[in-house]
Nucleic acid binder design. Structure first.
Lengths: 351, 351
DNA sequence: GCATTCGTTGGAAGCGCTTCCAATTCCGCT
DNA sequence: AGCGGAATTGGAAGCGCTTCCAACGAATGC
């Protein structure tokens, strides 16, 4: 039963042409008569022939393999959601374009993380690499990758990284701006803001988009009480009481991501306040919990699958054209403000 | 700069031995003098030589590649969590054993799903395959895989599947038994049960473990009101009111998974009841939400990472020994009942 | 009508590695 | 000293594919 798999020579023999011609047909090469092409394809079909990728690479140089790197020490929920989305999108694209997606993790805190990733690239001989945060911000790693012949695309890279490699992400500044406009439209005038990790580009941009919307509505930075969180549920829980105590008059709390928003909700609930009656809360990311929690969270949907898909597409474009590294380019994918029940009109009594 | 990568011949030349000897050293082969071995390793180090996996496969037959298959049309949270856990564990093992993990998805509802997966195996020439639900229960697929020379391990396979391939999972029956014992110990005597998908082995076993614990405590099936859900948050929301209305006296609600439990919590909250004061609720899986929700859910922790790790380990064992298919074997990984606040002592008033 | 191209085709040379097999060396023994 | 076998080692044959290059006939140019 497990008879030897058919090789290109079997196909050549069956269709009565040379091995080179079969190869040409298989790779869509030019200069093959239609009649011959048809004959070869028929033989391929009859033999259930599948090219051997390993052999193809050995001869050709392309592996048609893309690596997707993510941090192995992030195993809490938000990241599993984040990475799954990216991965699913990337996978769809890979299937479509005939590439393979191989996963690799690295310890984000390890000093040798760049080395480990470089090693992976050397070892797997992958044609392309998708870097997710925090690796998409590791300029050191990015520089080392330059010399290697791999197409790199970063997911939500930081500013410095954007100069070194192409990237995809959403426009956090605009998204935050739109989300805030929604709140302003609801009548809110005094805000709390739970910031994300210091130095994290998205975190900073979310804050500046927020401020821009406020400024446009004639609201100054003095109307906002901010606290620096770290994107975790826990920091949401811990920071919220302080914000509400110090910032009298706050009617809306903007969180740099959903996890902190859920933490805030938790904390607010404990304090005996009602959302959205007493306070509106909004998040960022549209994680699954945001829909399940009570009240469902108004947030910004981050199109992870589309991002993963686009990342692969960008790599494939570059690999297919075979050209040398084009100038790095950042591409923003359309986000969407998702309006649910955690944000409502500001109560006159609280203004 | 991107000078040609060193090949095995470069190493052979530098260390002054034959190519075959270098290969032997690289593969830990026997019959090499220590002095020679050291010399070769030194050359490898100096040249920063890395074997070319593609070439190695072409010559040797082993790809050292494992495929991890999951459903592409499951993109809701519970599954992203489930798959990420499995994947992370598998990845750790792959890194450790020097294998590569390549991902592949298939549409679980497509009629050609088995074909697509077979195609993937043929194409990628992977040495092993990890099948996650629902594919781990597809006997048709499993049978087609028999002929192919790949080591297959199923995650939480159904009964029929367990006869066709090895698998790992938790012992759902025992886990449910223990969870129920906990409830009984808390004084509960009348129960609601939200079942999982019909025909799903885990779902059925969770129910029978539950019944066994009840029986052991002298509680008959007449003390339970059950409803058939489908593992989703939504079904939890929809089914709960019916259970509470019809089953007067219920003080504890057992759900076949956390998502339904969270839905139940949601529903119960809407009805103006308090958990755990008026009613205890427990789930199954220990998804991230179960910790974040209020009240935190008492549930069973499913060691996903350990399962993924073990699955790879089983494959590696088989690939390394190179032997033909050993008899299928199911291995249960230790679970853990996680006690949180959603289940408390039964209130006398309600008994 | 003959030389020159162009479109097609097959032969053959590797790609970098494993592994069979024959050759060589090194022992312990007789 | 001489012999057999075990331990080492290198030569060489592929693994299945791409691609360069030469060869061929047909179509074009003058």
């Amino acid at each position: 039963m497990p008879a030897r798999k058919p090789t290109i020579d079997d196909v050549a023999a069956l269709s009565g042409v040379g091995r080179a011609t079969v190869s040409r047909v298989l790779n869509g090469g030019p200069n093959v008569r239609d009649e011959v092409r048809a004959r070869v394809l028929e033989a391929v079909e009859k033999l259930q022939y599948k090219v051997n990728m390993q052999a193809r690479f050995l001869a050709g140089g392309r592996t048609q393999v893309l690596g997707l790197i993510y941090a192995s020490d992030l195993d809490s929920e938000p990241n599993s959601f984040y990475h799954s989305g990216l991965e699913l999108g990337a996978l769809r694209a890979c299937t479509e374009f005939g590439f393979q997606l191989v996963m690799h993790t690295a310890n984000q805190h390890s000093l040798t993380r760049a080395t480990r990733i470089i090693e992976f690239v050397d070892q797997s001989r992958c044609d392309g690499l998708i870097l997710t945060p925090p690796f998409s911000d590791d300029t050191d790693l990015l520089e080392q990758l330059q010399g290697r012949n791999v197409a790199v695309v970063c997911i939500s890279p930081g500013e410095a990284a954007q100069k070194l490699a192409s990237g995809v992400g959403i426009d956090d500044e605009v998204a935050a701006y739109e989300l805030t406009r929604h709140l302003v439209g609801l009548g809110h005038r005094r805000f709390g803001f739970l910031k994300g990790l210091q130095g994290h580009l998205s975190a900073e941009q979310r804050y500046s988009g927020f401020l821009r919307a406020l400024a446009q509505a004639g609201i100054g930075e003095d109307a906002v009480v901010a606290a620096r969180g770290n994107f975790t549920f826990k920091s949401g829980i811990e920071l919220t009481p302080g914000l509400l105590k110090d910032g009298q008059g706050i009617t809306a709390l903007v969180c740099a991501n959903d996890d902190m928003a859920v933490g805030a909700l938790f904390s607010i609930h404990k304090m005996g306040l009602n959302v959205p009656r007493d306070l509106s809360v909004v998040g960022f990311d549209d994680t699954p919990v945001s829909e399940i929690i009570w009240p469902p969270l108004t947030t910004v949907h981050q199109p992870l699958k589309a991002m993963g898909y686009r990342a692969v597409q960008m790599i494939v474009e570059r690999v297919k054209t075979g050209g040398s590294a084009p100038p790095p380019r950042f591409e923003a994918i359309a986000h969407r403000v998702v309006i649910r029940e955690s944000a409502a009109a500001s109560q006159p009594a609280h203004v």
